[in-house]
Design a protein around this nucleic acid. Structure first.
Lengths: 255, 255
DNA sequence: GAGTGGTCTAGACCACACG
DNA sequence: GTGTGGTCTAGACCACTCC
């Protein structure tokens, strides 16, 4: 239990003159993030107990606790009293609506289905390359799909992924998978989406969009551009969605 | 410094058999919330130091600290190292954009101006009464205004307030005030907005709306319905906004 | 009962603001 | 220097889960 080989200079030095001061628990948080990033513990798995981690890093349990507290607040870890601390995953029911903010105006549940329109591999367009931090010559995967709720077409998604990371992604593998796309990315490509930024506008439907979504051309649609990030704030997905908001709305909480 | 008259049963009992268990720091948080609600400390003021509060409530400083931590995480309090803990206010620069999520597509700043269209006192319509928890016979204040950025009309707001709370509110007092509306509510009516829920849709501009916003009729607009809450989750404002999103977008972060 | 996270305490020391 | 919040520690005990 003692004499771990991790070390990294046992008791981290405090601000070596002129350097940026960083509290111990922040450093521990950084080390935990590294472990998560490199996949030492996979989504859904338990991480070592607080006392184990405290021994590994040569700090007190309370300091580890504070580091984990912050990671749990960011939804990267999930604490379960009596059981342990787990790596967050996009498979849990409570998290399913963390990224999808569109909800029915009345009542809650509705049967959803996804129809794949297209999946191709192309050189990344300039705007996509910029948002995903890709070199202009790199390849990208483009997925287009239509989501329906209660058999009503509601969301038209145009998704872009870095080709270098999502290697084996094909129409076939996508069609076979059941469940949230982000859970698919986790289990198949080890890519965990941790955070996202959205930019929302109101736009008029083009003829092609109107036909797919079964609304009148020029109908107002909610346009949602989302960039999702993995550990280390690396952009990993660009998703441009068009939402029909006749019977649905985008919900948001301001704190 | 000792022998405070607050008491409330010195050391709170732990779960008196079958009762819901509540940690000490949560109870302290509740007491602090009560003090905030009743205005013991006003927005912008310092609250007593952690040690003072610990003495008052007969708990350790660490326990008070955890209670304050949560209130600070909810943006009700603001900690300033070396100075003290302050009651949050809507006057600070960092908080100005906590509720207004509309930002220019490029660049940051822009001159904003507010034009008051209307301010009247009426019996609350059914839908407004329901959202603001008013009896159907109660009065409400309805404010309409047009916000412009760089002299371009951008936001058309339709605001509803409970008449019983906002007694002296008139066109005149509104016009006189400079700064955010929520700061005005704080200083003039002691109403602090603490949290809000928004429902967003894309809609087509009516003729009247189009004229005010100087866009073509049937133009797509972002419709944002916001309900704001004070302490104790009491709804205190209903705001229906229409945003022109040609050069602006609604930004959101998903965690 | 053993192990895990959750609460509470007490005390020491650090970083920061202000007179 | 004094007072405030911020960090870190060590130890005790509670609540929950699983065997």
């Amino acid at each position: 239990m003692s004499d771990q080989s991790i070390d990294t200079s046992a008791v981290p030095e405090r601000a070596p003159a002129g350097a940026a001061y960083s509290p111990l628990y922040q450093q521990i948080k950084g080390l935990l993030l590294q472990s998560l990033d490199r996949g030492e513990w996979k989504p859904g798995e338990v991480i070592p107990s607080e006392f184990e981690l405290a021994a590994r890093f040569n700090v007190s349990q309370g300091t580890v606790r504070k580091a984990i507290d912050e990671l749990a607040a960011d939804n990267l870890l999930i604490r379960r009293q009596g059981k342990g601390t787990f790596v967050a995953t996009h498979n849990e029911a409570k998290v399913r609506f963390r990224f999808l903010r569109l909800t029915p105006d009345d009542g809650q549940p509705s049967a959803s289905s996804s129809q794949l329109i297209d999946c191709r591999r192309v050189k990344a367009p300039a705007d996509v390359a910029r948002l995903l931090d890709l070199a202009s010559s790199e390849s990208a995967v483009n997925v287009r799909r239509l989501l329906s709720f209660d058999a009503e077409p509601t969301i038209l998604d145009d998704i872009w992924l870095p080709g270098a990371v999502f290697k084996g992604l094909t129409t076939e593998s996508l069609t076979r998978y059941r469940g949230p796309l982000y859970a698919f990315f986790e289990s198949e490509y080890g890519v965990s989406m941790v955070r996202a930024e959205e930019k929302i506008k109101a736009v008029a439907a083009t003829a092609a969009q109107a036909e797919l979504l079964q609304v009148a051309p020029e109908s107002p649609l909610l346009q949602v551009e989302r960039v999702s990030f993995t550990y280390g704030d690396r952009p990993m997905e660009l998703r441009r969605g068009l939402y029909v908001t006749n019977r649905f709305h985008y919900r948001n909480s301001l704190n």
